[in-house]
Simulated assay, not measured.
Amino acid sequence: MKRPGPLLTLLAGLVLGLCLLTLNATTGTRTASSPYEEKSPSPLPARSAASPSPTPTPSPSRVPAADADYAGRTDDDAAAIAVSVRDGKAIAYFCDGRTKESWLRGDVQDDGTLRLTGEHGATLDGTLQEGRSVDGTVSVGGGRHAFSADRAKKPSGLWRATATVRSAKIDGGWIVLKDGTQVGIVTRDGEPAPAPRIDPETGAVTVDGQRLTARPATP
Rank of each mutant, 00 (worst) to 15 (best):
L20M: 12
L21D: 13
L21K: 11
L21T: 13
L21W: 12
T22Q: 12
N24T: 13
N24H: 12
T26F: 08
G28Y: 03
T29N: 11
R30N: 10
R30Y: 08
T31Q: 09
T31P: 02
A32L: 13
A32W: 06
S34Q: 09
S34C: 07
S34P: 03
P35S: 06
P35D: 03
P35A: 06
Y36Q: 03
Y36E: 04
E37F: 08
E38K: 10
E38G: 00
K39A: 09
K39C: 00
S40K: 07
P41Y: 04
S42F: 09
P43C: 11
P43L: 13
P43T: 11
L44C: 12
R47L: 15
A49M: 01
A49N: 00
A49H: 03
A50F: 07
A50R: 12
S51P: 07
S51M: 11
S51G: 02
P52L: 13
S53V: 15
P54K: 15
P54A: 14
T55I: 15
T55V: 15
P56Y: 06
P56G: 11
T57G: 05
T57R: 10
T57D: 05
T57F: 01
P58T: 06
S59F: 05
S59N: 09
P60S: 08
P60I: 12
R62C: 12
R62F: 12
R62S: 15
V63Q: 08
V63L: 11
V63S: 07
V63C: 03
P64H: 04
A65T: 08
A65C: 02
A65Y: 03
A65G: 06
A66N: 09
A66Q: 14
A66M: 12
A66V: 14
A66T: 12
D67E: 05
A68E: 01
D69W: 02
D69S: 14
D69P: 00
D69L: 04
Y70R: 04
Y70L: 02
A71C: 01
A71H: 05
A71K: 01
A71D: 01
G72D: 04
T74F: 05
D75C: 03
D75I: 07
D76W: 04
D76N: 10
A78H: 06
A79H: 05
A80G: 08
A80M: 06
I81W: 03
A82N: 01
V83L: 12
V83A: 02
V83R: 02
S84M: 04
S84C: 03
S84G: 00
V85G: 03
R86H: 08
R86M: 10
R86Q: 11
D87R: 13
D87H: 10
G88W: 03
G88I: 07
G88S: 05
K89V: 09
A90K: 00
A90R: 01
I91N: 06
A92S: 04
A92N: 00
A92T: 00
A92V: 02
Y93L: 13
Y93W: 06
Y93P: 05
Y93M: 08
F94Q: 02
F94N: 02
C95S: 14
C95A: 11
G97P: 08
R98I: 14
R98M: 14
T99F: 09
T99P: 03
T99S: 13
K100S: 13
K100L: 14
K100T: 14
K100H: 10
E101I: 11
